[in-house]
Design a protein around this nucleic acid. Structure first.
Lengths: 80, 80
DNA sequence: TTCGATTTGTTCGTATGTATA
DNA sequence: CTATACATACGAACAAATCGA
């Protein structure tokens, strides 16, 4: 269920980032396609939108996703 | 270079406030214009964002700056 | 072309918990 | 016990870009 542990030692934004990274690896969010909006993800995980944005920043640094203002955040297409 | 002295007796947030006040006085941050974001300043000085916010609170109490949510912190225009 | 809704990204201000001296 | 400092987290607000009616 990809639950978020509020009482855990690891920060929420890292937990969210881990879940999203798992979904990308599993193909739940396929390459080239858009991931749910930050608002949507915030609702799903029960965290603030700013926390989701922080999680997406991590994935962006890892080169996993690419955000486009006005359109959404997309899974980067890799050649592996 | 406006260095911050970690080993100094004066608190970090006061040191940061002093540097920012100097820059305002010097015109580095001119009246009516925006000062760098708290995140930016935190990176520059190597302190937490919360410490920069504390510094800006001092300048706000002195009537030197004025923060606007979602836009930034601006140098107050004086009539001297 | 104009308008409104949606989305990303950024900003301030605030609160909480933890650690340190 | 108090002051300082940090990391985390939230809420509200704003800008710019995009898209469709």
């Amino acid at each position: 269920m990809d639950a978020i542990d509020l009482d855990g030692a690891t920060p929420l934004y890292r937990q969210v980032a881990d879940v999203l990274e798992s979904r990308i690896a599993a193909g739940t969010y396929p390459p080239g396609r858009r991931v749910p909006s930050s608002r949507n993800l915030a609702d799903e995980f029960g965290v603030s939108r700013r926390t989701v944005v922080a999680a997406l920043e991590i994935l962006h640094e890892k080169g996993l996703v690419h955000g486009v203002v006005g359109r959404g955040t997309f899974v980067v297409e890799t050649d592996d």
